[in-house]
Amino acid sequence: MTTNQIMQRILLWGGILAAAVAVVGGIVGWLLAAGAGVASALVGTALAIVFCMLTAASILLAFKVSKGAMISGAFFGIVLGGWLLKFVLFIVLVFVLGDQDWLHRGVAFGALVAAVIGSLVIDCVVIMTSRQPTIDSDADDETQGRPASGARA
C-alpha cells in the first residue's frame, strides 16, 4: 500500500466518522437543545473533520504537484502552507461562531472534541493496519552510469 493509498483510506474513513459523529451528536444535541443542539453538533463535527482531513488532502495534493519528490519546496510549501491557512480559517470561523446566539456551545465543543479524537483514532488504526513496504521506490543509481568502484572496466 503506497502513501497515497493510505491517505485516501484516511479520507474515506474520516468521512464515515463525520457521519457517525454528526448522527450521535445530533441526537444528543436534540435532547439538550432541540434544533439549535442539532445545528451546533453539525457545526462542531464539520469544523473538526474538515480541518483534520485537510492535512491528508494537502499531502495528496503536494505529492501530485511535486511529482512524488518529498524533499522539495512545493511539497512542504503545500503541506505547511495548508496547515497555516487552515488555522487562520479555523480561528476566524470560531471567532464568528462564538458570537452566535443560536449556537449551543457545549454541544458544538463536545462534537468537535469527539470528532478530533475520532480522527486521531482513525489515523492510528489505518496506519497500523496498512501494509506499507519499508522501501517503496527503486534505489537511485549511485554510480550515475559510471562503473561502480571496484568493478572492472
Partner: peptide, 20 residues
C-alpha cells in the same frame, strides 16, 4: 531517501496529533 514513503506517513500522524 528510500524510506520517504514510510516517513511521510509517520510525519502525517505526528502533525495530526500536534494539530489536534
Amino acid at each position: 531517501p528510500e524510506l520517504q514513503g514510510r516517513l511521510t506517513v509517520l510525519m502525517y500522524i505526528g502533525i495530526a496529533f500536534t494539530e489536534a
